[in-house]
Amino acid sequence: MKGMAFSSWTSWLMALGFIVFVAMVVLSIRRNQGIRRTLFAFPYGLWIVLFTLIPLLLIGYYAFTDRAGAFTLDNFKMFWDSNYEMNKQLAEMGLDPAALGLARGNVNVDTLIYSLWMAFLCTLICLLLGYPAALFMADRHFRLGSTLVVLFIIPMWMNFLLRTIAWMSLLEDNGLINTFLASLGLPRMQLMYNSQAVLLGMVYNYLPFMVFPIFNALNKQDQRLSEAAMDLGANAAKTFIRVTMPLSLPGVISGITMVFMPSVTTFFIPRVLGGGNTEMFGDLIERTFLSADNWNVGSALSLIMMVLILMSLSLLRKVDPEGEGGSMI
């Protein structure tokens, strides 16, 4: 069986890693160095090298080569103009693409802009919904706070795909909401297969990643700081604006990071809830790799995405150099 074969070669690999690890431990004991703590990072280090670093290098390689393996920047030109390759072939055949009415193909760039826009909206909505929620959860006078924490965690125990598919049964033309509307004699609504449905799915999936870092930052805040502010003459609103909120900013920033990054690269959600009408960059990359079978252009697209994420990350690092507000997830 194919699955069996897969699991058997991974287990061989793991066994190999383990043997090397044990060998290194034994060796360092032999040399009377004792077991150095760095040694325990070895299995994970191996894992990272094999499954993260090497694939990354491969992406870099594919992005700058053509199918024959020769260096080229065409893959990036394909990002800018999805008709680039076709037009190049037409030009080789002595035809003028412009004369044929073939303009620049802007599918890829538009998809990227659309993804960034959706991610921005998703992050904004998560922040607007998540901050008050975190504020409630961290409020010591609010007795349901800890219950709320659990309520936010429970959905995360469910598989991401299941959670998203569950929304289908709610939003479908014959789904729960529309059935309910119909039973009231109201007209059915088109709830699925549009940007709003995709946004809903994204917000639903990523909201906890906004709530928990903020909750963490608020929760570990010394109660006496807000008391001190009140003592010095600040009412509840001023205390929030001058003390509670600024001190929770590290949490907000890590929340934004943790929502924005997966949001930009979202795939699957648009396919399920957007029904192909709303392609996002993650889906585009997947389609380029698997359907179009073009690893070179797919790698270029991935690389562009990664550069964008790294840029936004370093921007956030500037605002929050200590990387505080670490999340509990």
């Binding site: 006496r224 008391e227 001190a228 003390v243």
Partner: peptide, 10 residues
């Protein structure tokens, strides 16, 4: 006004 235990400086 209060001087808090462990000061509670902002």
């Amino acid at each position: 006004n209060t001087v808090f235990q462990k000061y509670a400086l902002f």
